[in-house]
Amino acid sequence: MSGTLNRRAAAVALVSALAVTATACGSSDDDAKQSSSGGGKHAVSTAMGKVEVPDSPKRVVVLDTDALDSAVTLGVKPVGAVTVVAGAPLSTYLPQEKIKGIKEVGLIGEPNLEAINALKPDLILSSKVRDEKSYKELSQIAPTVFSETTGPNWRENFELHADALGKKAEAEKVASAYETKIAGLTKALGGPEKAGQVKVGFVRFVEGADTRLYFNDTFVGSIFKDLKVGRPANQDKTGFSLDVSPEKIDEADADVIFYSTYGDPKKAKETSITGGPLWKNLGAVKSKKAFKVDDNLWMLGIGYTGATKVLDAMEKNYAAE
């Protein structure tokens, strides 16, 4: 723990020193940075108050998966991004040509301040829930735009990111395309009334924890709400999730189940649970409407590109029957 604290202290000291140096250099550095970002600036309302950002930022660092999705969806390739865990890819669902070459700058919630500063960013995107403790240091490196949190409010976060990136017009087209996709899939499900009669659940097997049944105040829950599909009574709630032991997996019962696994399937108990009698007796399983999906997409694809791919997966599975 002391090593971690020492590294963080060193990084903070470095950032502070650089901030002092930048101030001493005067307007020449400011002019150069403004030129590289397109010249003008505008104010953005963030979770931390008003922040002045470049009109057309060129060197963006993103510190969460939703910010990465937003940037790539809007045609911006960040210079730096965090990963979920050490050694993990930045994303498994975004087009690899769109993220190739992006530098890793630490982990979600644990940004490497020295690595971020070395990239000379002109904009940093993250959220208060992830990085509030590092806000002061990040703001000394570059204008830092925080949303309040992440998850079910991904659309509002996307609008914030688009404002910060100077891409509001493009954002409107993205949102419109998503609504068209939603309308098409809802129609394929038989329309809103018929879709609402089908109870759709989401189950996540988690290594090191109980199995989670996801509520409405989650990314996947928000997509189900957009589609106007029904939810099992014990999942049709505000909040995050209902955690159940293997002996209570019957609480996952639904007409349609999508499920994913975080970590090793055996250690997450997916293998034993899905092979057991309680799982096999679930309505969705007996009717062959339990579909395994990509955990990285459904849990981390928090944005319009991710949401569209989730809809594609739903359409490919039970909507296509």
Rank of each mutant, 00 (worst) to 15 (best):
T261F: 06
K225R: 14
G275D: 10
I273F: 07
F224M: 13
V244K: 01
A233N: 11
D236L: 06
T211C: 02
K199Q: 14
G190F: 07
Y259K: 02
S260Q: 06
D210C: 04
T186R: 15
K187S: 15
P265K: 08
A268D: 06
D264M: 04
E251G: 01
K266R: 13
E270P: 10
P246K: 07
A195I: 08
Y214F: 15
G208Y: 00
S222R: 14
A195G: 06
S260G: 08
I223P: 01
D226E: 08
A233Q: 11
P232C: 09
D226V: 10
L227Q: 06
G230V: 05
G275F: 09
D243E: 14
L189A: 12
T211Y: 03
V198T: 14
D243I: 01
F215S: 01
V198M: 15
G190S: 13
T274L: 03
V229T: 13
G201N: 15
A268K: 07
S260V: 02
A209N: 14
E207R: 04
G263D: 04
A188M: 11
E270N: 07
K194P: 03
T218R: 00
F215Q: 08
G230Y: 08
S241V: 03
K267E: 11
R204I: 15
A209G: 02
F205R: 05
R231V: 12
D217Y: 07
K237R: 14
P265N: 11
S222T: 14
G196Y: 05
G276V: 01
K199I: 10
R204H: 06
V244S: 03
S260P: 00
R204Q: 15
A209V: 04
K237V: 00
V220Y: 05
F202E: 09
G190D: 09
F258D: 00
Y262A: 08
K194H: 07
N234W: 02
T238H: 14
I223D: 01
P192C: 01
A254E: 11
K267H: 06
T261V: 14
G263P: 06
V198I: 12
R231L: 15
E270W: 09
L213K: 04
N216P: 00
D217K: 13
P192Y: 02
V200I: 12
G201D: 10
T186K: 14
R231S: 15
S272E: 14
T218M: 05
K266H: 11
G191E: 11
F215H: 14
I273H: 02
Y262L: 13
Q197G: 15
I257H: 01
L185V: 15
L185C: 11
I273W: 04
F215C: 01
T274W: 02
D250Q: 13
E247L: 02
E270Y: 07
T271P: 07
F205L: 08
V206D: 10
A188C: 03
D264A: 05
F240Y: 13
I223H: 03
R212F: 03
D264S: 11
D210I: 03
A209Y: 14
V200C: 12
K267G: 05
K269F: 06
A233C: 05
Q235Y: 05
A254Y: 12
